[in-house]
């Protein structure tokens, strides 16, 4: 039977998390694929998948703030650093176990994020961009210069791998399951957030803040809340990053990282949960694929020298091309594909 639309006949159907049986099956399949992946892929690809998982959490956080609430932040890299350093300091200096350091990192980052969110009440658009950029530079500088706490430009090493009770997550595969458990929780929470009052208030603030205020949305509270929730996500991502690599240094958290995350959500799709995931996958795989492609070439040409330049250039071109030709990102392309096949062969 060919469906010609999705009809919601009961209140429960309207409130459903996924509206069609097909969409539900897609999710089950995806979950199955995530569970099975380490059994079929090599250690190297599991490592990449871990980085993707961490990027997904960070991108979800940024998308909550920028995509859904409309507050553009260029301070993501610094917040990631706050999370990573907090977690490392809690684990090394205070000897806290991972399952306390992780939420601790999230909470501290949420606090720092809310402080940097305060200007958002007065500043909008471009001015907020500049304010968050200043925040990025100041936090980055503080991390680099507060040597007693952060180890300065040397960074911190010997960050313990996570252990929860008897379980340790030192290998890539075990870390994979830890990361993706958190990714799953983060995704479910984010998807549900925008079916709730708070999430809808966020979207109202994005669409027109003055109108939202007139309708009773407390602007200050919701903007700060958006900064806090978003920074919590980013802090968790930073913590996972620190415990995965076991070492961190200031150069992991530069303004370039902030820009990479912004690129993720723009290429993935602003204001969509799936977009954050697509974007994180795309942006993490891009350099990997480039390296694979340039690998055989480098035997013939001295291309390793220009690899960084090539990566940077392609990064820029991808952003420009997406913004000009598909400003709604990969999520929109995915939706178009689904729409095409739903009505196939009678699509128009």
């Amino acid at each position: 039977m060919i469906e010609c639309g999705v009809f919601k006949r009961t209140y429960e159907e309207d409130m459903a998390f996924r509206h069609t049986a097909l969409a539900r099956w897609r999710i089950y399949l995806l979950l199955l694929a995530v569970v099975v992946f380490p059994f079929v892929a090599s250690e190297y690809y599991v490592g990449i998948a871990n980085l993707i998982g961490i990027a997904i959490i960070g991108a979800l956080g940024l998308n909550i703030l920028t995509g859904f609430t409309g507050q553009i932040s260029v301070g993501q890299g610094a917040f990631l650093g706050v999370g990573a350093y907090t977690s490392a300091i809690l684990a090394i200096r205070l000897g806290l176990p991972f399952w306390l350091a992780l939420p601790g990192a999230g909470l501290v980052t949420a606090l720092v994020g809310s402080v940097f969110g305060i200007p958002s009440l007065r500043l909008k658009g471009l001015y907020l961009v500049i304010a968050t950029l200043a925040g990025q530079v100041i936090i980055e500088w503080t991390i680099g210069h507060w040597v007693d706490l952060t180890g300065g430009s040397q960074g911190m090493t010997n960050i313990p791998s996570p252990a929860i009770g008897p379980l340790t997550f030192a290998s890539r595969t075990s870390y994979y399951y830890l990361t993706y458990a958190i990714v799953l929780a983060a995704t479910v929470f984010a998807s549900n957030l925008f079916r709730s009052k708070v999430g809808r208030a966020f979207v109202a603030v994005r669409d027109r803040d003055i109108a939202a205020e007139a309708m009773g949305v407390h602007l200050f509270r919701y903007k700060i809340l958006a900064f806090a929730v978003s920074s919590f996500y980013v802090g968790v991502a930073g913590s996972l990053w620190a415990h995965y690599l076991n070492m961190i240094s200031p150069e992991h958290f530069t303004v370039g990282v902030s820009i990479e995350y912004l690129a993720m959500i723009i290429i993935g799709g602003l204001g969509t949960v799936s977009g954050s995931i697509f974007g994180a996958i795309f942006m993490t795989l891009l350099p990997v694929i480039l390296r694979e492609l340039t690998g055989p070439l480098s035997a013939m040409l001295p291309i390793t020298q220009v690899f960084n330049a090539l990566r940077e250039g392609i990064f820029g071109i991808v952003i420009i091309v997406f913004l000009i030709y598909e400003p709604h990102g990969l999520a929109k392309i995915w939706r178009n594909i689904k729409d095409y096949f739903r009505l196939w062969p009678f699509s128009y």
Binding site: I72, L126, A263, I266, G316, I319, I320, P327
Partner: peptide, 15 residues
């Protein structure tokens, strides 16, 4: 504005 800002960032990468 976010698109316009990002496009100049993309441009800066290319340059």
């Amino acid at each position: 504005i976010i698109s316009v800002i990002m496009v100049t960032i993309g441009l800066s990468s290319v340059l």
